[in-house]
Design a protein around this nucleic acid. Structure first.
Lengths: 107, 107
DNA sequence: ATAATAGTTAAGCAAATACTTAACTAATAA
DNA sequence: TTATTAGTTAAGTATTTGCTTAACTATTAT
């Protein structure tokens, strides 16, 4: 169960609430770092570090323009999470079915 | 972006690969701790600690029988993850649509 | 050239995490 | 009763994480 070297975990990347909030911001379109940082009560370097974690798992990409760096959401690695959770989705669906059947039989 | 007290994060709980593997094991049905621990090269207390993390976010439940404790998967908190990722699913779907349209127009 | 702006990198730190071994509790078996 | 089994809890440790401030790089503006 050890981590594969050079392939950091997307699950670990989205574990942090600040990083999830950043992804949420970026779902409105690409933004420069200062603008990303603005809603957070945290230093710019902190945000920069979060962005590089997201970059490493390729949840965001960078584009340089002048002295700004625009970060853009790349949702594709989230497929990994989606696929993983889908497996369990089936389980809670089964559970709801059982409940549904029960309610049908016991109205 | 601070953590809600008394409501530990399910995202943090599934960030650990060992815990995800445990959930995967439990998807085959409830199991006592020793059996859960068996495939891992890790001490029993380590597994016990992982189980209590999963318990805190209610991804597993406990049932005592004699001196054994059976742990059972409770997938419901994963809805939170499912809902979160679904929002982005739309995004990569859009992206695929754009690609699809491009391929249609440029066969 | 100098200063200002946008951002990263470096260094350091406190807290959290993922383990370990040892000591404990509770239930069964001899 | 004593020993064994199943598991948790306690205590300690090494590593990682999420921040901070200070120093740096690169680009634009004066």
């Amino acid at each position: 169960m050890s981590r594969i070297i050079g392939s950091p975990d997307v699950f670990a990347a989205i574990a942090d609430p600040t990083r999830r909030a950043i992804l949420n911001l970026l779902s409105q379109g690409e933004q420069p770092v200062k603008q990303i940082a603005q809603p957070f009560s945290m230093s710019l370097p902190a945000i920069s570090q979060h962005l590089s974690v997201l970059c490493e798992v390729e949840l965001v990409t960078q584009r340089k323009k002048g002295r700004q760096r625009f970060y853009r959401l790349n949702p594709e690695p989230l497929k990994q999470v989606s696929d993983w959770v889908a497996h369990y989705e089936q389980f809670w669906q089964d559970k709801l079915d059982v409940l549904g059947n029960y309610l049908e039989d016991n109205p």
